Simulated assay, not measured.
Amino acid sequence: MASVLTVNAAATPVELGALRTGIDKRPSAQPLTVRPPGPRRGGLGSGVVGDSVCNARHHGGDDQAVYVYAREDLDAWQNRLGRNLTNGIFGENLTTSGVDVTHCLIGERWSIGPDGLVLEATSPRTPCKTFSTWLGIAGWLKTFTLAAVPGAYFRVVAPGTVRAGDRIDVIYRPDHGVTIGTVFRALMLEPDLIPTLSVADALPEKIKQQVDRRSSRAGTPAEGT
């Protein structure tokens, strides 16, 4: 059964040299509320109440309200790196079990727990300097990118609370084949794939704009137009 292992939040930001970040997320012993889209609260938009988002330009917001990473993928990294990786260490809000996050479709919707929370997959995480500095692993950005197991961002379709042990049910899957992994490879490794992303209507606007620009440079319309 697919489920939430832990719900993670950064109650207090950490200082990494000149960087101030909310990447240090820790499992919560209590249920946490996931707020809906609406007026941007302090520039953050929707997301997990009690979590810290320090750079609202690149993190948080309605299209990146909840970051999800699979425990199975953390275990693979743990074995590869020879290092203990606790739930939340990648900055994920939800650490999951029993669901293949990389092969989740853009626009796929998850119902989580009994309190009405529904999330919709929007895009992969792309690694940044903060992520590399936080883990302190030489060459981490390249290593993470080449592995192409990025975890997924979700937007909030219906707000609710979430807790460790909540069941995850996939309640909708779109009829295209664009997965979180497809988008990551297109953006980070195989730019020729970018025009094929246009069939995924649930992508964030900033990625749709990249699709349009790439298609225009190639002199061909984006797929599906």
Rank of each mutant, 00 (worst) to 15 (best):
A2Y: 01
V4G: 00
T6F: 12
V7C: 04
E15D: 14
A18G: 06
R20N: 09
R20K: 11
R20V: 11
R20C: 10
G22Y: 03
L32Y: 09
P36K: 10
G38M: 09
G38N: 07
V48D: 04
G50C: 10
N55P: 07
A56H: 11
G61D: 09
D63E: 13
Q64G: 10
V66A: 04
E72P: 00
D75H: 07
D75R: 08
D75M: 07
D75A: 05
A76G: 11
R80W: 15
G82L: 13
T86F: 08
N93F: 00
N93D: 04
T95L: 03
T96N: 00
S97W: 05
V99R: 00
T102F: 01
T102W: 01
H103K: 12
C104I: 06
L105V: 03
E108C: 08
R109A: 08
R109M: 09
I112C: 04
D115I: 07
A121S: 08
T122Y: 05
S123R: 02
P124R: 00
C128Q: 06
T133M: 09
L135E: 02
I137W: 03
A138E: 12
G139H: 09
W140G: 01
W140N: 01
W140S: 02
T145D: 02
V149C: 09
G151A: 11
F154G: 03
V157G: 05
G160W: 13
T161C: 12
D166I: 00
R167N: 08
Y172C: 06
G177K: 13
I180D: 01
G181L: 04
A186Y: 02
L187K: 11
E190T: 14
P191C: 01
T196D: 10
V199D: 01
A200C: 12
P204M: 06
E205Q: 13
K206E: 15
K208S: 13
K208Q: 14
Q209H: 13
Q210H: 07
S216Y: 09
P221S: 03
A222L: 13
G224C: 06
T225K: 11
